[in-house]
Design a protein around this nucleic acid. Sequence first.
DNA 1: CTCTTAACCTGGACGC
DNA 2: TGCGTCCAGGTTAAGA
Length: 270
Amino acid sequence: MPELPEVETTRRGLAPHLLQRAIHGVILRRSELRWPIPAEVAALLPGQRITDVRRRAKYLLLDTDAGSALLHLGMSGSLRVLPGDTPLRAHDHVDISLDNGRLLRFNDPRRFGSLLWQPAGEVHPLLQGLGPEPLEAEFNGDHLFERSRGRRAAVKTFLMDQAVVVGVGNIYAAESLFRAGISPLREAGGISRERYARLATAVKDILGHAITRGGTTLRDFISPDGAPGYFEQELSVYGRDGQPCLSCGRVLKHALIGQRASVWCSHCQR
DNA sequence: CTCTTAACCTGGACGC
DNA sequence: TGCGTCCAGGTTAAGA
């Protein structure tokens, strides 16, 4: 489900409720997520104060002096801050209760998400080897150009590789390629430096704009305050296969690329 | 290395 | 209304 804009929307929604709050307790109702929730989460978090709420790639980090809770929402995860007596719903796997009577509740029907532990001063193995943040200056066309040499996979697959650049999933890869006018099928290693400059700019524009709109609400995504994301109304190609291209009017094509549903305009995207 | 494939899991949409 | 099938925003492990 969530790509970078949805995770960032979640972070921004949570931070005011969590910053400087002390953690009262941790309730694990179901520890079997993408990976088992490590014992440190329940053992070390209670009594700690949340000093920062950060995002790296599609991961959220709740920092304390003891270490960081590392959360990933997978395809269907969501986090809400709720009153302490809120009734449970299906798939409410974890509660982190706070010193003000509220709690942070993690819900994830498909359980592709995760809650892991990063000891203070360490970087979790899952965060090592990640590419740059797409909204930072180190991510640019030159980076894409250099990383893509010799790679024969489709550029859409390449763009979704978190070792190349983080945060770009199936929705925003499709949207960015449309904006840049690049066919998702094109071999990554054969695209020019100039075209990658266009693509990097498109990624930044699309992601930045999606964040200001609160992300994209499809089946599962809800922001911590319960408001929907509004970027869905602005999708140009994702989920629009068979409909006319918003630019030229031709019918949008669709195919599986790297096992992921893909939509593009074969006239506007070369 | 790079690439492809299968796997993890539930629920909603759709066709009959 | 009920049932079977397909599909979904992510990521890793395993094998070629």
